Simulated assay, not measured.
Amino acid sequence: MSMQINNPTLLTPTTNNDSTKVQSTANVENKGSTDEKAANKESDIKLSSRAHKIQMLNEEFFPGGPASVAITPGFIQRLHEYGFISDTELEKLDVAKSEEQKPSGTLGELSKKIDSLSDRLTSESPDDSLIGILTRADAIINNLDGSKPSPLTGDIKTVSAELNAYMGSSDADKLADAEKKMMDELSLTLKIADKLNPNNASSQKLNSYLSFM
């Protein structure tokens, strides 16, 4: 007489377990999707707020474009109020406390000084590395309000670092005292430009917000 052994483990279908696993995976995916949407929404809110603050800066300090702007203590203070610079950065950037960096005019006048120095160097020392630095720096300050973006305006930190390195080298000895003072003013302006740079957030999204404001 043969014996028949029923194995419930082998005969029981695994549909329920599979269904549970699928449901669990779906829950994880849904949670991830929800978290991602929440993060994107928070990012959009921050960008919208940043865009609004930049728009207010434009209205108060850029009515005639970057050429009409002077980096004054009032401008620095407004950057601090809007959260573009910290308390520590405010101390470093406060031009009222640093006569060496105190601007002598508008950014339009600074741009003309840059052009003049570039022309002199091109004539006297066409291989001088400062020429390329000044070209990029000039493009950056003329895009301070975001109205003239170009490939030259992207990497502000690198331009600023290159300028500081040049001024700390013996190559800077060929500059006149007035030109060195202008370099201090340019260095300060580049720091400001970096704080306003849309790449500190998301340039594509920020520019899209600004285009509707």
Rank of each mutant, 00 (worst) to 15 (best):
M1W: 10
I5S: 10
P8K: 10
P8F: 10
T9L: 11
T12N: 11
T12Y: 04
P13S: 14
N16V: 15
N17A: 15
Q23A: 15
T25W: 09
N27V: 15
G32E: 11
S33E: 13
S33C: 09
E36M: 09
A39Y: 07
A39G: 00
K41D: 08
E42W: 03
D44A: 13
L47M: 10
S48V: 02
S49C: 04
A51V: 05
A51I: 03
K53H: 01
K53Y: 00
I54C: 00
M56S: 07
L57V: 00
E59N: 09
G64P: 04
G65T: 08
S68H: 08
A70F: 00
I71D: 00
I71A: 00
T72Q: 05
G74P: 02
F75Y: 14
L79I: 14
L79G: 01
H80F: 14
H80V: 09
G83W: 09
F84T: 06
I85D: 00
T88A: 09
E89C: 07
E91P: 00
L93D: 06
A96S: 15
A96T: 13
S98P: 00
E100H: 06
E100Y: 07
Q101N: 12
K102D: 02
P103Y: 06
S104A: 13
L107T: 09
L107P: 03
L107R: 06
G108C: 07
K112Y: 04
K113Q: 06
I114N: 01
D115N: 09
S116D: 06
L117K: 05
E124D: 07
D127Q: 08
D128R: 05
L130W: 01
L130S: 00
D138I: 05
I141H: 02
N142V: 06
D145Y: 09
G146S: 11
S147W: 10
P149S: 11
L152T: 11
T153W: 02
G154Q: 11
D155H: 11
K157L: 12
T158A: 08
A165H: 01
Y166I: 04
S169W: 06
S169H: 04
K174S: 11
K174I: 12
L175E: 01
L175S: 04
D177M: 07
K180H: 08
M182S: 08
E185M: 06
L186C: 04
T189N: 03
K191S: 12
D194R: 09
D194A: 12
K195R: 15
N197S: 14
N199Y: 14
N200G: 13
N200P: 05
S203K: 14
S203I: 13
K205Q: 12
S208N: 15
S208I: 11
F212I: 15
